[in-house]
Simulated scan of single mutants.
Amino acid sequence: MSFAIIGFGKVGQALAHAFARKNIDVIVTSRRPPEALAPQARAIGPTVVAGSLRDALEADTIILAVPFEEHRDVAKALPDWSGKTVIDTMNALLPPEELDGLPSSAFAAKAFAGARFVKGFNHLIAATLAADPVVEGGHRVVFLSSNDEDATAPVAALAKQLGFAPVKLGKLNEGGALVHARGRVWGPLIFQDLFKKEP
């Protein structure tokens, strides 16, 4: 399984730290050329490698960490997203009517034809996401939701590998709505920094 993070702002860098902590290879890319990202990527850890968008699109699992307005530009980079898992970390700070009344992930998923689309890692601020998720015998919770049950399992496995405790919330328009930030309508689980103790 190969991984890439598209977007290297605060959230993209926070997730790159999570990969580096566990020595998991990940390609990072942004609008800036790879050589501009390389020093920052190397400073995070040796398994974090700056690449082009084309390099990132080769990965099996792609984490979307771009501003919501840019998701369509990323989607256009591949004619068919079949076989790819896309993890949506974006929050759309737009009124619901601009999203056709849909949760932001359901709206964004339409642009990624064929992809297994999972909402996750979006409810925490970047500084919290970047911190070690293992605290006092517990693991920081990340919420996952998808309309494709088969897609959630590998993302949950990745979250566990990164040291988080994945909690599945069901479909995007059900449990997923609990973690969506849309305009002034914010889900009740946004910014909830929760831990799950080992049994």
Rank of each mutant, 00 (worst) to 15 (best):
F3N: 00
A4M: 09
A4L: 07
I5S: 09
V11S: 04
G12Y: 00
A14T: 09
A14S: 02
L15I: 12
A16H: 02
A16V: 10
H17I: 10
H17G: 03
A18C: 13
A18G: 09
A18S: 14
R21H: 11
K22W: 12
N23A: 15
D25F: 09
V28E: 06
R32E: 14
P33M: 12
P33W: 13
A36E: 15
L37E: 05
A41W: 03
I44T: 00
I44W: 03
G45M: 10
V48Y: 01
V48S: 05
V48E: 03
V49I: 14
A50E: 00
A50N: 03
G51I: 10
I63A: 07
L64N: 08
L64D: 07
A65L: 01
V66F: 04
P67T: 01
E69R: 13
D73F: 00
V74H: 01
V74L: 05
A75L: 03
A77I: 11
A77G: 03
L78I: 08
S82F: 10
T85Q: 08
D88W: 05
T89D: 06
L93M: 11
L94R: 04
P95G: 08
P95W: 07
P96C: 15
G101H: 02
L102S: 08
L102R: 01
S104N: 04
S105D: 05
S105L: 05
A106Y: 01
A106M: 07
F107T: 05
F107K: 04
A108P: 05
A108T: 01
A109E: 07
A109Y: 00
K110F: 06
A113T: 14
F117V: 10
F117Y: 15
F117H: 01
K119T: 01
G120F: 03
H123V: 04
A127P: 08
T128I: 13
A130C: 11
P133K: 03
E136R: 14
E136M: 11
E136G: 13
G137Y: 13
V142A: 05
F143K: 05
F143V: 02
S145V: 06
N147I: 02
E149A: 15
E149C: 12
A157I: 14
A159F: 10
K160F: 07
G163Q: 03
A165N: 11
V167T: 11
K171N: 10
K171F: 08
K171V: 10
G176C: 03
G176M: 00
A177D: 00
A177N: 04
V179T: 09
H180W: 04
R182N: 05
G183K: 08
V185A: 07
G187T: 07
G187A: 08
P188Y: 02
L189W: 04
Q192L: 13
F195V: 12
K196Q: 15
K196F: 15
